[in-house]
Nucleic acid binder design. Sequence first.
DNA 1: TAGTGGTCTAGACCACGTG
DNA 2: ACGTGGTCTAGACCACTAT
Lengths: 266, 266
Amino acid sequence: MTSNPASTANPIGPAASGEAVPVAAPASSPTFSPLYQQIKGLITQSLESGEWKPGEIIPSEVELASRYKVSQGTVRKAIDELAADNLLVRRQGKGTFVATHNEDRAQFRFLRLLADDGVEHPHVSRLLECRRLRASADIARQLDLKPADPVVLIKRLLQFDGETTVLDEIWLPGGVFRGLTLERLSEYKGPLYAMFETEFGTRMIRATEKIRAVAAEPSVADLLHVPAGFPLLSVERVSYTYGDRPVEVRRGWYVTTGYYYQNDLS
Amino acid sequence: MTSNPASTANPIGPAASGEAVPVAAPASSPTFSPLYQQIKGLITQSLESGEWKPGEIIPSEVELASRYKVSQGTVRKAIDELAADNLLVRRQGKGTFVATHNEDRAQFRFLRLLADDGVEHPHVSRLLECRRLRASADIARQLDLKPADPVVLIKRLLQFDGETTVLDEIWLPGGVFRGLTLERLSEYKGPLYAMFETEFGTRMIRATEKIRAVAAEPSVADLLHVPAGFPLLSVERVSYTYGDRPVEVRRGWYVTTGYYYQNDLS
DNA sequence: TAGTGGTCTAGACCACGTG
DNA sequence: ACGTGGTCTAGACCACTAT
């Protein structure tokens, strides 16, 4: 906060004392970072460190403003962006909360499969296996691990209205998901990502998907109850947590008869 | 602007004169609409009416603020949202411009097809036909027309690096696209959506897509140079213009060997 | 009634692009 | 040097929720 913009009429100078507030590097520097971006970073740190956990309320805007020694408007803009990134959820009159995969309809955000009539149907998961093994070169690269590092492999089916529709192969870094077993998986109720965040402190923030049409290989076809060679939607997903660190590789095969993958371009 | 919020210290009352500024319906009414939303609506009207055309610059924030008799911050928030909706583009130091499909890399926004190496390749269009006919019940419903209303049907192939990769069937309302012929289509250089906006004053704002894996039917397979039954990505798109009016139905078949459809979940 | 987020204003200054 | 968007502040009031 050396030469903070605005407030020429402020006779006190740069906000009383510099204290423990790491706000700095402002005007006319070659690497200019707005104050609200720095505040955004500080809030993200608190989220990542677990100071405020998923579902919990965070301090009010005025409280954060006084903590960081900035105006409410600056905190506001930081929270605005974090809310746009789905890290926080604002509720007027109540407060601002840490986003979570537990509540709400956050399911659809990561599985955009609708029935032909456009209705979102509930699904049930049927676990096939959960093994620990060493990462292949390909998986290691995508998870930012060293080859042969330990990983967890989960295989499961998803059934919509009793119809087997999705086969998923999920790779997770073994270090983060220590103690993940088939038993624990089957005991847990709710979305997988909800379990990851409550049981392993790893919250999925965003993901990228590569989508193709492929012919069902015999083993896959068998599990999905379709003939070999049947056209399937292949969905390769990489999920990221705080700091854009990859923490999940998922390969999915979708049967798209009666269902479709919904996407919105805007 | 009867009892505008803020500014108790304003002794003048409700902003000089009410004049031609349609800002109204403020506080404590059952249907509360923020001022900046109303400004957003007014700006959208000017966009839709063609007062500011695609690619052109719009008046500066201060100018709009004085026109609408609100503060710059209020105009700013309205423009912020319009920029987030891809209707406007801000350029620091220069001004705010009406978004267009002509320039930039707006191609990828509506055709998210990448090569396996993750690189975006250029493509060329090969027109197959352009006919005028009467809408089927299905197409009429999706375009919000009456059955048997006139529509235009375009068929084309897209080639990436010489490889035939996409077959598109495009339906457009005949009323809006009067005078669209195969010749005019083939003469035009650049993206289809760019032509629609410059030649027919219809700008595509957003679209929804239904994605499935299907087996290639013989006629489609033939055009795409793949065997019948080959797995193809089926992409059914409906595009919308201002006011969420549908103005295009597009059915695409993608060959996803060597290429994939990229999607980001966030 | 009190607290929270949401809106609005007015003014100052900074960063960027162009003369 | 000037104009544009971008940042920051301080303060007032509104809308919503809980007590």
